[in-house]
Design a protein around this nucleic acid. Structure first.
Lengths: 251, 251
DNA sequence: GCACAGCCTGACGTCGCGTCAGGGTCAAGC
DNA sequence: GCTTGACCCTGACGCGACGTCAGGCTGTGC
């Protein structure tokens, strides 16, 4: 098929296909002697995936890494797309619910607080976050295991896990504010609790993996931001404690 | 509230708020003597609407026209947002269904044709168009009637209607190329045929409404583009003919 | 053989911000 | 009163995902 035919079939412009060709996201498998692009059935299949991931909001570069990942077979793509779409369904119905809530509030003459109104946008981020997480850790075993386990969790499970996490966080804050060094017995014990918590709830997290996580806490602005909002210096403190604990358990 | 506070409340960056200020989409209602932006509760309300419309995919300029439309009260915005969100829900579940269909096909070892696969994207474009159209003509009676009538049309109906439209278009082109003035008897007669066609197939279209449509043909780039691609000067010609005809039938 | 639709490759424009750069402001603590 | 550090300001450039010409080659139906 020629560009124009593909374009009208897929509902995109010719320019878009040119663009995908130039950035290497979708290069037609052949050219005529005159230089016309010729798209094969496999090219169409790829285009289809590109468009689905694009519709889900992935930047094209990430779409490329998703598609070029050799460990992802067609079925895996379908499962992932299905999951992402259902996430999106959920988010959208949350927004619908929020608008309905506001309509009701209006009808009854009450006014919502700004916090209540923006609540639903707060959730908009996590969805994007999931996509990102999937991107970063992609098909690692840890990620897959985590996904497998968490699929079965109920709302109560999540609340419990969240509470557990916050508890560890509080203990870290206390230690930090009490002046305990990051490589003190106390801090390392909390770090160990943290590690076991991850192993219990998400995926097997041996000390080395945990140390890697610790580095991320100071390298990834998102995690750093989270900890820093809880208490200044907490990100570095947790990171150092986690790595000290890993060294202790390794040595 | 200061920019930073508003930003973290709404889950956007400070830069975004600066941007909205500069393009006039959301200018804070006040400034401190030092030039700091100060946002009022009303500003937050507007921001909330901006973010919802933005999330629905509207370009910021359209968001501005939506919000600055004096004929749209808060309740109207809520209704519209509700409608658009539910459209989106529908589209998303259609995509979910499409992916599920493909998974099933895979499981059974059949392959879908390219047409079947891209089907769901074909609907994606019209959906956006529909949202726009709905936006422009909103809750007018004409729009509702058109919706009601066209719902029942079969594929054959659409083909017939399309052919009819193209026929009128061809007649306009002939008249234009033959040098007939836009307010000539000939051109006005074609315009009249056009008007009746709309009345038959979509909604009751009296001359005044038709004249309004005519103006849109030169004001709305989408329509202008359509006619200009058919023949240069055609948009203006049709517009003038339609309005001349409306004047004739009114006088 | 010629009109005309369709294809090609640059190259510049647009939208919605992200990201410095360079500099003022304000509350807290010394 | 002075510093420090978080927060604010205004340019100005960059970027992703195309849109939109411009200038020119290709392929087909009459």
């Amino acid at each position: 098929m020629n560009v124009g035919e593909v374009a009208s079939l897929a509902g995109v412009t010719v320019r878009t296909l040119h663009h995908y060709d130039r950035i290497g996201l979708l290069s037609p498998s052949g050219r005529t002697p005159a230089g016309y692009r010729r798209y094969s059935a496999a090219d169409l299949e790829r285009l289809h995936r590109v468009l689905l991931y694009r519709a889900l909001g992935f930047p094209l570069e990430e779409v490329a890494t998703l598609l070029d990942d050799p460990s992802a077979d067609p079925a895996e793509h379908l499962r992932r797309q299905h999951r992402l779409l259902r996430d999106r369904l959920e988010r959208t119905s949350a927004m619908v619910a929020a608008v309905e809530k506001e309509m009701e509030a209006r009808a009854m003459g009450i006014d919502l607080t700004p916090e209540e109104r923006f609540e639903v946008f707060g959730e908009q981020d996590p969805a994007q976050y999931e996509a990102e997480a999937e991107e970063r850790w992609g098909d690692t075993d840890a990620w897959k295991e985590s996904k497998r386990r968490t699929r079965g969790y109920s709302k109560e499970d999540w609340l419990r896990i969240k509470a557990e996490g916050e508890d560890v966080e509080r203990r870290f804050v206390s230690a930090l504010q009490a002046g305990a060094a990051a490589d003190s017995e106390q801090a390392m014990d909390i770090a160990e609790a943290h590690r076991q918590q991850i192993s219990r709830n998400f995926y097997d997290c041996p000390p080395e993996v945990h140390a890697g996580l610790g580095r991320m806490y100071v390298e990834d602005p998102r995690f750093t931001g989270h900890y820093e909002r809880v208490a200044p210096g907490l990100a570095e403190y947790v990171s150092a404690a986690v790595q000290a604990n890993a060294a202790r358990r390794a040595g």
